[in-house]
């Protein structure tokens, strides 16, 4: 289920649906009758059992969440609560995406495995803690500050590349709502030769690996998604802000 062709990730949605051989639906393709979800097809209504949704919680069902949502399906949550449809991911799983949760990863790893994590965390300050907030406010020009529930590279400050005004504006927001922010040191992202309008030039990239978990344990997929920031000097690689992707090569040792 996609928000539609104007979403920056629409191509990905349509590619996935094509490769998986499943229907790519928008909210208006579905309707709920007697707490059961149906799809509008050329052969009449067809029952839907599982929805892999790429729409945020807030927009999923106008009867339960944002009433002005035109992307969702009225009654979908009712069908879900009645056990007639499975949503992947379930509503509320976004909490795992909360950036403050990340700061607890070392403790989480120790709790579940009894061992120290192999990969160290990026040092993270939780701004709701007074000492952390004081430190962050003093070092705003060096840090990256992110909203805990933010995504897509929005609502964040990259200190070293921001103007004094931008930093001061952000300082006001941070003071007003410190519990909504975390801060990290600015990482030196690698660069990669990238074809841009003026020719080939270095642009910052990051790598997103994919780890699958299931009945037979964990598996790391080969390769991954390399994201590239198209704007010169930018560290924001998110596709919703014009970031691109690159092929990822994994070489045998």
């Amino acid at each position: 289920m996609t928000p539609g062709q104007y979403n920056s990730a629409f191509y990905e949605h349509s590619f996935l649906a094509d490769k998986l051989g499943i229907e790519l639906v928008e909210g208006t393709d579905l309707f709920v009758r007697d707490e059961v979800v149906y799809m509008r097809t050329t052969e009449g209504p067809q029952r839907v059992d599982v929805i892999y949704r790429r729409i945020d919680d807030d927009y999923l069902d106008p009867l339960v969440f944002r009433p002005d949502s035109a992307l969702g399906v009225p009654g979908l949550m009712g069908a879900y609560l009645a056990g007639n449809v499975t949503l992947a991911n379930a509503v509320g799983t976004g909490v795992a995406d909360d950036k403050a949760v990340y700061s607890y990863m070392p403790e989480i790893v120790r709790f579940f495995t009894g061992a120290d994590p192999i990969l160290p965390n990026v040092p993270t300050w939780r701004c709701r803690e007074p000492e952390a907030l004081t430190y962050v406010l003093e070092h705003l020009a060096e840090l990256v500050v992110k909203k805990v529930d933010g995504s897509g590279g929005y609502g964040m400050l990259v200190g070293p590349t921001s103007s004094t005004t931008e930093i001061e504006d952000f300082r006001a927001k941070l003071k007003a709502e410190p519990e909504s922010y975390i801060a990290q040191p600015t990482l030196a992202l690698s660069t990669c030769p990238t074809f841009v309008e003026s020719g080939v030039a270095p642009r910052h990239v990051d790598l997103r690996p994919f780890v699958l978990t299931g009945g037979d344990g964990m598996r790391i997929t080969r390769g991954g998604l390399t994201r590239v920031a198209i704007k010169e000097g930018s560290l924001v690689v998110n596709s919703s802000q014009g970031g691109g992707t690159k092929d990822t090569w994994v070489l045998d040792r």
């Binding site: 229907e23 639906v25 393709d29 509008r40 097809t41 050329t42």
Partner: peptide, 8 residues
């Protein structure tokens, strides 16, 4: 087939 697909 989805009705919307047929329509498009």
């Amino acid at each position: 087939m989805l009705s919307r697909t047929a329509d498009n």
